[in-house]
Design a binder for these strands. Structure first.
Length: 412
RNA sequence: CGGGGCGUGGCGCAGCCUGGUAGCGCGCACCGUUCGGGUCGGUGAGGUCGCCAGUUCGAAUCUGGCCGCCCCGACCA
């Protein structure tokens, strides 16, 4: 992508309404923009990051044997009335509910247990149909009393939600444990160091785990030990819970990037999901749900990976791999930078090419702000040595590399 | 939902108290200049001052209502 042709260019000034690092840098860098309170457009750069996050999650879900699908976001009341949640005050608090022009009630999905269970009903008739696991990565709506912290708490946001159905508790627990172990790996791939934390189940159930990233800007409080043997959300924390041999108990604010729940039979029962076991007995399956907030993950990465100049993207989710900075209007520089851009693209590298007529200072500052892992500077100075200068966003060292070997170096 | 703040060219702001018909910086267009960490100079385009009503000879400015955004609290994937 030539920056000169990009829909968005980095903003000179930091947005005034930004209350957090993620909002400030994501808006200034042109990744997102705000449409309303807690409502953000994902712009081309932001969407690139989002797609990488989603793809990593997708790969890990597929590895768990889950099938991807897409559930409707606009919900008629049927499934919600069946579960009793349509009129649940706690649900009403967060679910957008409204009437259409003909007076019919609808809701916007903030979670999909009801829909997933109803969908499963005709497909789960026999123990042979179990277990089942399916997921989606999709928009969710929550009428937050108070949206804040940029993309960390929005009214519309992306969510991966996985639902699983099992013939018995043993199978349920085995699968739950697989997911429990898979989640930290997912977050690691996203560049997040997430703690597995015991938590209360909120509106769902007593049994749940959360995945928390320690960060000053987090809204949750977790108690944990350095070795990771103990971690609990403040909601359920009690000194008596702490094992005697636990050392260095700490307390920190944290951002919840995922959570998983054992739901029991409640939703399948409400939806009328049932199967015949080997003995021919009619049974209701066990259900679990497992969430990750991709957009919140993006915000969390920015919260935990930035400096005073801007974002420092982990390579796995960076919008581009390489940022070419061409300095000056010298024809040779333009020619060399153009060629480098073409060669890298040819090699399949995602490149942002700053070909604008801007000063060196502006370009370097913008490169720092946008946070692409590798910066390649081409200038008259570097061309004297038939070279370009390489600098990593997360480092200080600069390295001169011969033009002919750069593509190889950046693709190896 | 309670308390507080704010709404003025694309962005960031001043003007409002004490009414007289809108200004600054950035950005944008053009000319020249400069070319390794937010160059410099010049010319220019761009605004029914959130919306509605009221007071007044006259409202960005005063009054009322509404809408929207931000912060604190309650709440919280």
């Amino acid at each position: 992508m030539r920056l000169s042709q990009s829909l968005t260019k980095p903003l000179r000034e930091r947005p005034a309404e930004a209350d957090s690092a993620n909002a400030a840098y994501l808006i200034q860098g042109g990744f997102i923009d705000q449409l309303g309170a807690g409502i953000y457009n994902l712009l081309p750069f932001g969407w690139r990051v989002y797609r990488k996050v989603a793809q990593i999650i997708r790969e890990e879900m597929d590895a768990l044997g889950a099938q991807e699908l897409n559930l409707a976001a606009l919900h008629p009341t049927g499934p919600w009335k069946a579960s009793g949640r349509w009129d649940d005050p706690e649900v009403r608090d967060v679910m957008y509910q409204f009437k259409d022009q003909r007076g019919k009630d609808y809701g916007l999905g903030f979670t999909h247990e009801e829909i997933a269970a109803q969908l499963a009903k005709p497909h789960i008739q026999s123990y042979r149909d179990l277990p089942q696991a399916f997921y989606q990565i999709q928009v969710k709506f929550r009428n937050e009393p108070r949206a804040k912290s940029g993309v960390l708490r929005g009214r519309e946001f992306m969510m991966k939600d996985l639902y699983s159905f099992h013939a018995d508790e043993a199978d349920r627990d085995a699968y739950y444990d697989r997911v429990l172990k898979a989640y930290p790996k997912i977050f690691k791939r996203l560049g997040l160091d997430a703690l597995t934390v015991e938590a209360s189940g909120g509106v769902f159930t007593k049994y749940s785990h959360e995945f928390q990233v320690l960060a000053g800007s987090g809204e949750d409080t977790v108690h944990y030990t350095e070795d990771g043997s103990f971690a609990q959300n403040d909601e359920i924390f009690d000194e008596k819970n702490v094992p005697k041999d636990a050392k260095n108990l700490k307390k920190s604010s944290a951002i919840e990037v995922g959570n998983i729940f054992k739901l029991g039979k409640r939703f399948p029962e409400a939806a009328g999901v049932a199967f015949l076991d080997k003995q021919g007995n009619r049974q209701v399956p066990e259900m679990c749900s497992y969430g990750i907030g991709p957009t919140r993950c993006i915000g969390t990465v920015v919260e935990t990976s930035h400096d005073d100049n801007g974002i420092i993207w982990p390579a796995a989710i960076a919008p581009f791999a390489v940022h070419i900075v061409a300095l000056g209007d010298d024809a040779d520089v333009t020619k060399a930078a153009d060629k480098l851009y073409a060669d890298l693209e040819q090699a399949g590298v995602e490149v942002l090419y700053d070909d604008r007529d801007e000063s060196a200072g502006v370009k370097f500052n913008d490169a720092d702000l946008v946070g692409i892992p590798q910066r390649v500077t081409v200038s008259k100075k570097t061309l004297e040595k038939q070279s370009a200068e390489l600098k990593r966003r997360d480092g200080k060292k600069v390295e001169l590399v011969e033009l002919g070997t750069i593509t190889k170096k950046l693709t190896s």
